[in-house]
Amino acid sequence: MTTVTRTSQPAPTTDPPTTRRNRDRHHRGAARWIVLAALIAGAVVMLFPFGVIVLNAFKSPADYSAGGPLALPTEIFTSGMIDFWNRVNFGRKLWNSFMIAGSVAVLGVLVSLFNAYALGIGRVKGRLAIVVLFLMANMLPQEVLIYPLYYIAREVGLYDTQLAVIIIFTVIQSAFGTYLLSSVFGTFPKEILEASALDGASKWQTLWRIIFPISRPTLSVLMIFFFIWTWNEFFIPLVFLISNDNQTVPVALGVLQGQRMMDATTTSAAALLGIVPAIAFFLIFQRTLARGITAGAVK
C-alpha cells in the first residue's frame, strides 16, 4: 500500500508544479498592480484628513459657506490664520512647547545617563529590582499620579508653571531612558573601562570622556524621542498649564476646540498650525527616528 501511494504520488506532481508556478508568476504580474492600487487607495484615505484641512485653512468664511468643505478655495485667504495666530498668541505657544520639550529632552537624557551609568556600568546592588521599578513606572497611567502631583505643585508654588511640567516629564521620560540605556550599557566592552581605570581616570572622567562619546548616537535618538513625545503630550500639560501664557500648542488647540468657539475655517487653520511643526520635526529627524523605532522594537 505504502509503496503504491509513494510511486503513484510523484507522477501527477512532477508536471503540474511547473505550470502552476508559471501561471502563478503570470498571475502575479497583474496582481501586483491590484495590490499597488489598493495600497495607494489606502494611502489616499489616510491622507484625506490632512488634504481637507489644508484645503480649508486658506478659505474665507464666505467662500466656505458658499462652496462647502470640499470645494477648492476661490482665492488664497490668509487673514483667518493670521487672526487666529494673533488672537491666541500662537508664537508664544510654539515657544512654550519648544522650551518644555527641549528642556525635557536634555534633562531626561542626562538623568537617564546618570542612572544607567550606575545600573549598567556600575552594576550597583539590587540593579535588577531598580530597573524593574523604572519599567513599571513606564506603564503607570498618568491619572494615578495626577492629583497628588497637582496637590504637591500647588503646595510648593509650582502650579501653572512650566518648571513643574519640565520636572514631571524629565522623570517620566527618563524612566524609559534608564531602562533602555541600562541594557545598552550592560553590553559595554569591559576592556575599555579597565583601561580607563588603569590610566587613573575617575568615575566622573570615565563617564564624560569614554561612555558619553561612545554612546552619543543612542543618546541623540533618545533625545529626539523625548522631545517629540513631550511636544505631543496633552494630559499633564492640560492639568498644569491653565494660564494662556504658559500653554503648549496641543493644550491651547485642545482647549479652544473644547470650547467650540471657533468657526469652521478658523478650526482648520488652527489644526494646520498644530500639524506643521510635527511634520517639520518628522522631516528633520526622519533618519534617526526610523532607526530608533526599529531599535526599540527588537529587544
Binding site: 494611502a43 491622507l47 484641512i53 496633552f234 488647540l253 476646540q257 469652521a264 498644530g274 510635527a278 511634520i279
Partner: peptide, 19 residues
C-alpha cells in the same frame, strides 16, 4: 504616508477629525 498620523499630536488629530 501610513505613518503620518502617528507624528501628529493626538489632541491635534482629534481636532482634525472633530472638524
Amino acid at each position: 504616508l501610513f505613518y503620518l498620523p502617528q507624528i501628529v499630536p493626538v489632541a491635534v488629530a482629534g481636532i482634525v477629525w472633530g472638524w
